[in-house]
C-alpha cells in the first residue's frame, strides 16, 4: 500500500502536533527546568518540521495516486491469508491464555496453509506436528510458560 508523500507529511505533522501538546502538559522535575516532557517535545517539533518538508517534496513530485494498492491485494485468498496473519493473530492473542498455544496455533497455521494453496491432510499434519513440537520444546526444555489453554491437563 503506497501512500502519497503529501498525505504522509500531513499525517506526520498531525502526529508531531499531538506529541508536542501532550509533552508540554507533563509536569517538570522538582526544582529543575526540564522533565519528562523535554525529550518527546523535541521529537514532536521534529515530526512537525519533517512532515512539512515531506509534504512539500510530495507536492512538488505530483503524478502519483493518493493511495495505491499492490495488485496482490485483489486476490481474495491472499487477502484472507494476510488478514489471518495480522488481525487473526491479534484476536488469538486476546484470548491467548484461554485458547492456549497448541489449539490456537494449530488453527492459525492450518488456515494459513489453506489460503496459501497448501491443502490436504499432509499440511494439516505438518501444522499439528510443528505446533506440538514447539510447544513441548518451549515448556519442557526452555521453561517458557506457553499456556496449554484448552488442552490444559492433556499437555
Amino acid at each position: 500500500m503506497k501512500i502519497h508523500d503529501s498525505l504522509i507529511g500531513a499525517l506526520l505533522f498531525a502526529l508531531g502536533l499531538w506529541v508536542l501538546t501532550t509533552a508540554l502538559n507533563y509536569p517538570q522535575l522538582q526544582g529543575q527546568s526540564i522533565g519528562p516532557g523535554t525529550f518527546p517535545g523535541v521529537l514532536g517539533a521534529l515530526f512537525m518540521a519533517g512532515g512539512v518538508a515531506l509534504a512539500a517534496a510530495g507536492l512538488r513530485a505530483q503524478g502519483m495516486r493518493i493511495i495505491h494498492f499492490d495488485p496482490g491485494w485483489r486476490h481474495p485468498a491472499r487477502l484472507a491469508a494476510a488478514l489471518i496473519a495480522t488481525v487473526g493473530v491479534v484476536i488469538f492473542s486476546l484470548g491467548f491464555e484461554t485458547i492456549g498455544f497448541p489449539v490456537g496455533g494449530f488453527v492459525l497455521l492450518t488456515a494459513l496453509f489453506f489460503f496459501s494453496g497448501y491443502r490436504g491432510l499432509t499440511w494439516v499434519l505438518i501444522a499439528a506436528t510443528f505446533v506440538l513440537a514447539v510447544h513441548l520444546l518451549m515448556t519442557r526444555l526452555l521453561y517458557v510458560p506457553l499456556p496449554a489453554g484448552l488442552l490444559k491437563g492433556i499437555l
Partner: peptide
C-alpha cells in the same frame, strides 16, 4: 510461501516468551 506460516508460529512464540505475556504478540503485529 509454505515456510511462512511456520515462521509466523515461531514469531508468536518468540514475542510471547520474552515477558510471558500476550501483549508482546500484539506489539509484534501492530
Amino acid at each position: 510461501l509454505a515456510l511462512a506460516p511456520l515462521i509466523l508460529g515461531f514469531c508468536i512464540v518468540g514475542s510471547y516468551s520474552i515477558n510471558a505475556s500476550a501483549s508482546g504478540v500484539i506489539i509484534m503485529v501492530v
